[in-house]
């Protein structure tokens, strides 16, 4: 048995990251890139402000998109044709069209028409509706994966439909949907970068502006990548921890 079979998991991660970083560094060394960090450092406040805006927008959209996704999943699972159709049309339209178009129409057409002019609110809502459509399919799949026998058993002991959902179905569905939900939330955080097209001063827009001021493209965008990782990596870690907490064999 070789050492690679027995090495601690954290060490394996460190090794892989180090090798990857070395490859990237080698690539930069080979093109002899002239770094200009000083120019970008002048604008560090913009990165911080933009990052905080992205954190706020992402967190709000994360909560709202799960609520939207939950309601839409119940619509998709409904026995009433009209309710099911509402859920289905919503999911297919949102998933089938670009977020860019949804943002432009949502802000310049829908929000203008109803007199909603706070672009941060509109942007967060559009992002939530976008992500909610993906959540809906994840939740629906999780609910559908619980065997009918579990519902029978819940009815047999006299649980109400609401108790059945709360005590029997959701705890089991949670285990199934955690990994894909975590993946969707990571996507949501990165998708928030598109809010820059309706002039929301989030992380990506600020990096673009710094780039325009300094002409230092890589120095502007590398911190951008690092900033998103700073959000997504803990989220993934949290999801894996939760997954281990709710694990059981069916």
């Amino acid at each position: 048995m070789c050492y690679a079979d027995r090495m601690p998991r954290w060490l394996a991660h460190v090794v892989v990251v180090a090798v990857f970083a070395a490859l990237v560094a080698a690539a930069f060394a080979r093109i002899e890139y002239a770094w200009n960090w000083a120019g970008v450092w002048e604008y560090r406040q913009k990165f911080v402000q933009g990052w905080l805006a992205t954190v706020g927008i992402s967190f709000a959209a994360l909560v709202v998109s799960m609520l939207v996704g939950g309601v839409a999943a119940l619509c998709l699972s409904s026995r009433l044709p009209l309710v099911e159709a509402v859920g289905r049309v919503y999911v297919e339209f949102i998933r089938g069209t670009p977020l860019l178009v949804q943002l432009l129409i949502g802000f310049y057409v829908v929000a203008s028409a109803v007199g909603l002019d706070n672009r941060y609110v509109v942007g967060t809502l559009v992002l939530s509706l976008f992500s909610g459509a993906y959540m809906a399919e994840i939740f629906r799949g999780g609910l559908a994966a619980i065997p009918q026998a579990q519902r029978d058993s819940a009815r047999a002991i006299g649980l109400t439909p609401w108790q059945t959902l709360r005590l029997v179905i959701l705890p089991q569905a949670l285990r199934l949907v955690l990994p894909p939900v975590a993946g969707q939330l990571v996507s949501l955080i990165k998708d928030s970068s598109l809010l820059s097209v309706i002039a929301i001063s989030e992380f990506t827009l600020n990096a673009q502006e710094v780039n325009a001021f300094t002409y230092s493209t890589l120095e502007s965008y590398l911190p951008l990548a690092a900033g998103y990782l700073l959000l997504t990596l803990p989220l993934s870690a949290l999801a894996r921890w939760l997954e281990s907490r709710v694990r059981f064999e069916a």
Binding site: A149, Q150, D152, S153, A156, I157, V168, Q172, F248
Partner: peptide, 15 residues
């Protein structure tokens, strides 16, 4: 709620 039912496949709650 006044009776009890036992199924072929146990149907215990696995979680």
């Amino acid at each position: 709620r006044t009776v009890g039912t036992v199924f072929q496949a146990y149907n215990l709650f696995p979680h």
